[in-house]
């Protein structure tokens, strides 16, 4: 990718995107989905979360973005608590507007893309920087075009999502998340809704983003991607982190029976 493009998305030096998760619990009704998850994601690293469906991976990801409010435990980004503010010995719950402000530092890419279908690709990318970060449209638009070019869709700026393939839509969604210049980018099974031949193009874009130093947390079933790109692989099952380590450690020499059983099924 070209140098000027990198400038628009690389976080400022120092601000890095350290994600700390401490003893997080979350229940839906009587079902406890997260049962005490603790995890530290180093700034600028790529973490891939693996696990069978229902293991709580997606819920954990949504909790980092405060799309789900946790019942117990804390999550912080660069030491700043998500959803709360510390004041002396009390924790104040943030108002919705403040939570929305925090979210602009955390990009989220959905399994089902969730592009705004009535807006063009360009408008999808421009919307949040203008309305959430109050930046001027004239400044944002050239940047948005560069981002679209970076995900290989320079010529699709004026297309609406329904006119794009699944892979193209997901690439627009990634450009949309990058437009806020987030410290942390979360991917919730970004390729699960795609036809097999479209998976590669999306993974290429994620790889490209990984090389810019943004912290990435990726929930996926693409083991090959994990092996190639991840710094850390985390295996979750039944609401807890079973084990974590380098791809070589977790994927090739898993220490736990449950990890082994899962890998045998998906490989």
């Amino acid at each position: 990718m070209s140098a000027p493009v990198t400038d628009t998305t690389t976080p400022a030096a120092g601000a890095a995107g350290l994600v700390e998760i401490h003893g997080v619990h979350k229940s839906f009704g009587t079902l406890e989905v997260l049962r005490g998850v603790s995890l530290t994601v180093r700034p600028g690293s790529v973490t891939v979360v693996l696990g069978p469906s229902g293991s709580g991976k997606s819920t954990l990801l949504r909790a980092i973005n405060h799309l789900e409010k946790v019942d117990q435990g804390f999550i912080s980004i660069d030491g700043e608590l998500v959803g709360y503010r510390r004041k002396g010995s009390t924790l104040r719950e943030l108002k919705e507007r403040e939570i929305l402000g925090q979210r602009t530092q955390i990009g989220f890419v959905f399994q089902s893309f969730n592009l705004f279908p009535h807006l063009t690709a360009l408008e999808n990318v421009v919307e949040a920087p203008v309305s959430a970060q109050r930046r001027r449209r004239e400044d944002v638009e050239p940047e948005a075009r560069e981002l679209l070019a970076r995900v290989g869709l320079a010529d699709k700026a004026d297309a609406r999502p329904r006119q794009l393939s699944g892979g193209q839509q997901q690439r627009v969604a990634i450009a949309r998340a990058l437009a806020l210049r987030p410290k942390v980018l979360l991917f919730d099974e970004p390729t699960s809704a795609l036809d097999p031949e479209l998976v590669g193009e999306v993974l290429e874009v994620i790889k490209d983003v990984a090389s810019t130093g943004t912290t990435l947390v990726v929930v996926t079933h693409e083991i090959g991607f994990a092996r190639e790109v991840a710094d850390t692989v985390v295996f979750m099952d039944e609401g807890v982190v079973v084990e974590q380590g380098t791809p070589a450690e977790v994927l090739d020499h898993p220490r736990h029976e449950r990890t082994r059983a899962f890998l045998q099924k998906v490989l």
């Binding site: 929305l100 979210r103 989220f108 969730n114 919307e127 309305s131 959430a132 970060q133």
Partner: peptide, 14 residues
């Protein structure tokens, strides 16, 4: 529902 979630995740005001 995903539309509202996507908007919220981008920090777009209510």
């Amino acid at each position: 529902q995903g539309q509202q979630e996507a908007a919220a995740s981008l920090g777009i005001p209510r």
